[in-house]
C-alpha cells in the first residue's frame, strides 16, 4: 500500500510515520512538509516541500499516486507560525495534496486531521458534542479545520472515496509545539475570573495511533478523538504549580497581549478554550478504532508539567573563568 503523510515534519506526523513503519501492510510511506521529521525514520521517505510551492507539491503527489492519504498538513495558529500563515499553508496543502492525490488515479482512502474546535463554544444543545452535532466554529482555526473537512468530503461526494475526519481534542505534549501547552507552562497563567469550564486533551501518541487505526479499519465519517476525563483552567494551573491570574471578560485582549510579551503567543481558539471550555464525546472513536488505552486529560497535563523547565547553561568559558 502506498501511503502519503502530509505534514510529516510535525510531531504527530512523524509519529504516524513511525507507527506505519511497524505495519507490514504499509509497503511505501512517503511524507511531505516544509520542515523535516522530528525523529529518525527507517523506511519512510521524506520530501521537503513548502505547501506554498503549490506546483512542486502537486507534481510530486500526482507522480507518487498514493492509495491512502493521511493528511496532517493542518497547521495550528501560533504553534509554529503566525495565524495568517497557518491558515494559508493549511488551505494550500489541503487543496493541492488532495486534488493531486485524486488525479494520481489510485486513491482509495483519505483521513484528515481535524479538531474539536469545529464545534465552537459549547452550546445549550450539547455541552459535550458528539459527531452528530452540527459544527459551528467560532474561531479562525475552527473555521480552517472545517474547511479541511469540507474539502475532503468533496472527494467522497464526487469520487466515492471514503473519508475520515479525526476531530482531535487539543494535542498537548512535552515535544508538541502547542500554544496551549506553552501558555500553561508560563509562571503566571491567565484564567477566566467568572468561570472554570472543562476542557479535554489528547496525548500526541494517541493522536497518531488513532490515525493509523483509521487507515487500518477504513472508517468513513467524522470521529471525536478525546482523552478520557477533563480538566479546568484553574485546576490545570494549580496542578502545574503556576499562579492563576483571573481575567474579567473585557480584559482578555489585554491579557493575551501581555502573555505574548512573556513569550507565548495566544491564538483566539486558545482564549475560546479558556473561557468556554472544549470537550467532546469520544466513545464512538474508542469503539470503532479500538482505542481502549487512551491517556486521560489529567495524565497528559501531568506529563506536560513534568517536562523539565528550560535552564540556561553556563557557557564553558564562564565556567572556566
Amino acid at each position: 500500500m502506498r501511503i502519503l503523510v502530509t505534514g510529516m515534519g510535525g510531531e504527530i506526523g512523524t509519529r504516524v510515520a513511525q507507527y506505519l513503519e511497524e505495519r507490514a501492510w504499509a509497503d511505501e510511506i512517503v511524507g511531505v512538509d516544509f520542515v523535516p521529521p522530528r525523529r529518525r525514520l527507517r523506511r519512510a521517505e521524506f520530501r521537503r516541500i513548502d505547501p506554498r510551492d503549490r506546483d512542486r507539491l502537486v507534481g510530486f503527489v500526482e507522480d507518487y499516486a498514493p492509495q491512502v492519504v493521511a493528511h496532517f498538513g493542518v497547521y495550528e495558529p501560533a504553534s509554529r507560525m503566525s495565524p495568517a500563515s497557518a491558515a494559508e499553508r493549511t488551505e494550500l496543502c489541503t487543496v493541492a495534496a488532495l486534488s493531486a492525490a485524486v488525479r494520481g488515479g489510485r486513491l482509495e482512502y483519505v483521513v484528515v486531521r481535524s479538531g474539536l474546535e469545529v464545534y465552537g463554544p459549547r452550546s445549550y444543545h450539547a455541552t459535550v458534542p458528539d459527531e452528530y452535532v452540527m459544527p459551528a466554529p467560532a474561531s479562525p482555526y475552527g473555521a480552517s479545520l472545517l474547511e479541511v473537512e469540507v474539502a475532503a468530503a468533496r472527494l467522497r461526494r464526487r469520487h466515492g472515496i471514503p473519508v475520515a475526519a479525526l476531530r482531535y481534542a487539543p494535542v498537548v505534549g512535552s515535544h508538541v509545539p502547542s500554544p496551549l501547552g506553552r501558555l500553561l507552562r508560563l509562571p503566571v497563567v491567565p484564567v477566566p475570573a467568572c468561570a472554570d469550564p472543562p476542557f479535554a486533551l489528547l496525548h500526541p501518541d494517541d493522536a497518531a495511533l488513532a490515525m493509523v487505526r483509521a487507515i487500518e479499519r477504513r472508517h468513513d465519517g467524522p470521529l471525536n478523538v478525546v482523552g478520557p476525563g477533563a480538566a479546568t483552567p484553574w485546576q490545570a494551573v494549580r496542578l502545574g504549580g503556576r499562579v492563576p491570574l483571573p481575567v474579567a471578560p473585557p480584559l482578555w485582549g489585554a491579557a493575551t497581549r501581555g502573555v505574548e510579551v512573556l513569550g507565548a503567543a495566544v491564538a483566539p481558539h486558545v482564549v475560546e478554550l479558556l473561557r468556554h471550555g472544549r470537550v467532546g464525546a469520544g466513545a464512538r472513536a474508542v469503539e470503532i478504532l479500538g482505542l481502549d488505552g487512551l491517556r486521560s486529560t489529567q495524565q497528559v497535563l501531568r506529563e506536560l508539567f513534568e517536562w523539565a523547565d528550560v535552564v540556561p547553561i553556563v557557557p564553558a568559558r564562564e565556567a572556566v573563568a
Partner: peptide
C-alpha cells in the same frame, strides 16, 4: 484543592 489533584469529568 490547592494542588489541583482532583478529577473533573467532561460535563464539569
Amino acid at each position: 484543592r490547592l494542588g489541583g489533584r482532583y478529577p473533573i469529568d467532561p460535563f464539569g
